[in-house]
Each structure stands twice: as C-alpha cells, then as structure tokens.
Write a protein that binds this DNA or RNA. Structure first.
Lengths: 136, 136
DNA sequence: CTAGAACCTCACGTCAACGTGAGGTTCAAG
DNA sequence: CTTGAACCTCACGTTGACGTGAGGTTCTAG
C-alpha cells in the first residue's frame, strides 16, 4: 500500500507518516523508484500511534513501547514502561476530571444565575473557595 | 503580596506569572517602584488557571472564561463557553481512557507472557486486532 | 551602609509534531 | 504520449507556554 492510502485509512496526513518514519515508529519498504510501500498492518499501527499521541506520549515514549506490539515479548523493562505510561495517563485523566468537575460546578452556578440573577451574590464564595477548604 | 510569594504558594514559576499578566489572565497592581502587588485571591486564581491549562485550554480560552469568576454574571455566551470547554474536556478524557484501557490490555498480555512465554503466540491477534472488529 | 536576595524589562531559545512551500520524479488514465 | 495526481527530498515555518540569560533597579537584614 502506498502512503496516500495509508494516510487516508488511518486518518492522518502524509506528512505525519513521513515524520513517523523519521522517528522510527513505522518502517516502510521502498519500491524500486523510491516510493514507500506499507503492509496492511501499517494502518492499525498508525492508529495505535495516534492513540498514544492523543494520550500525551512523545515519539520517544511510543518508540519504547512499539517493539512489544511486534514481538509480544515482555521484558521486565517493557512491563515497567507500559505500567509507567498507564500511570501517567491516569494522572492526566484525574487532572482532566478535576477540571471537568470544576467547570460543571461553574455551569451550575451560571444556570442558577439565569434563574434568578438578583439572589446569586451569596454564591460568590462557593465559586472562590473551591480549591481550598471552606473558611469561617 | 509580591510575585515570588504568589509563585511559591500557587506552585508556578515567577516567569509564568509574568506571562499570565501578559496574556491578561491576572492583573497586578504596581508599587511605586514598579514591583507587582497581588491580592490574596491571586493564589486561587492562578491555581484555577493552572487547572485549565492542565486540561488543555489555551490562554485565549481561559481568558474568555475568567470574567465569570470575577463577576458571576452568566451571559448566554458565557454559559456556552463553559459547556463547550466541558465538552472538549470530556472528549479528551474519553481519548485518554481509550489509551489507558489499551495499555491495560497490553499489560495483561505482558503478564501472561511472563507466566508462560512459550504458549503466548496465540494471543498475537488479540494485540493486533483491537481497533478493528474481529475478522473471520 | 552594604551585600545579597528579589524584583524589573527586553528579547532570544526551546520543544514537539507536524504544516508548508520549493523543486523535481514517477505513476496511471485517456 | 501526455498530463495531472501522487510521490520524493530538503528545509524552513508554526504554535504555546513558558525557560533562560543579560543588564539594571529595589528591597531588606545585619
């Protein structure tokens, strides 16, 4: 398969695929004329790479993990890398969840305001005192 | 309060605080000599900003949201901004959760390998066929 | 009164994952 | 055989949230 098709089917740009090769994430054969030739499996591989990128991993981190997909041989270091990244992702999820909840709270306040604009001034400290324990 | 103390208490760098001011996220008074003077509330405000940064919002998006914290006046646009950002965060959480689950699956495979390295070759397509529905 | 900490303003550097031409070759359809 | 799409290799540009000096002023403890 050629690069354009892979790009289309994996939902990434052609440039991105060349970049992945440059980073060692995807290996492509070459036709005699120099065009990249990808196996079918490249599409899934690229989707997996995208998944990890979206989770905040760097090329370098992904490069450390990919060999496991190829060989399915789990060295202790590999297992650690996997669990480490999982842990980092968990931390990010927690941070995002906090932000989500905080926004939800503000949205609740906004709705409350729209119902009765005049009587909402008492909610001010609810908005302000979120990240620290309530005073008084 | 001066910039160093705010930085320390909010857990950010002095440079970051100057950057926030440049972006209009935090307004600081100035002493006659030109040193920034922050109110107590600045610490919480900065923590909130950090929370949103961590959730992937840009300075511009945060700038759109901050007025609500100050005034607690919810215009329809403000409510939309809040819900929009909440939605984007949800999308990110979902993406991260997918990556998390995928890694978890790989970790399971790795553990399985460590228990019986020889008998694991049959699991290969489990690792490969995740993002697409099973063939055959 | 003096030294060192803390502050100030430019302003360039960084890092990652690509985007975007430039300039040229190869492929596939008519 | 031609022409336009698709491909190739440089190689510089982009974006965001700061880091990092440079060079100078102000504050504060002893």
């Amino acid at each position: 398969m050629r690069i354009g098709k892979v790009a289309e089917r994996a939902g990434v740009s052609v440039r991105a695929l060349r970049y992945y090769e440059e980073q060692g994430l995807v290996i492509a054969d070459r036709s005699p004329s120099g065009h990249r030739q990808y196996p079918e499996s490249a599409v899934e591989r690229v989707k997996f790479i995208q998944l990890l990128y979206a989770a905040g991993l760097t090329s370098k981190a992904i490069l450390q993990i990919l060999p496991f997909l190829d060989t399915l041989v789990a060295t202790p270091q590999m297992t650690r890398r996997l669990t480490d990244e999982r842990a980092r992702i968990r931390v990010r999820i927690d941070a995002l969840t906090k932000a989500h909840d905080r926004l939800e709270e503000l949205i609740r306040l906004a709705a409350e305001y729209e119902n009765s604009p005049a009587t909402c001034s008492a909610s001010a400290d609810i908005a302000a005192s979120h990240t620290s324990p309530p005073r008084r």
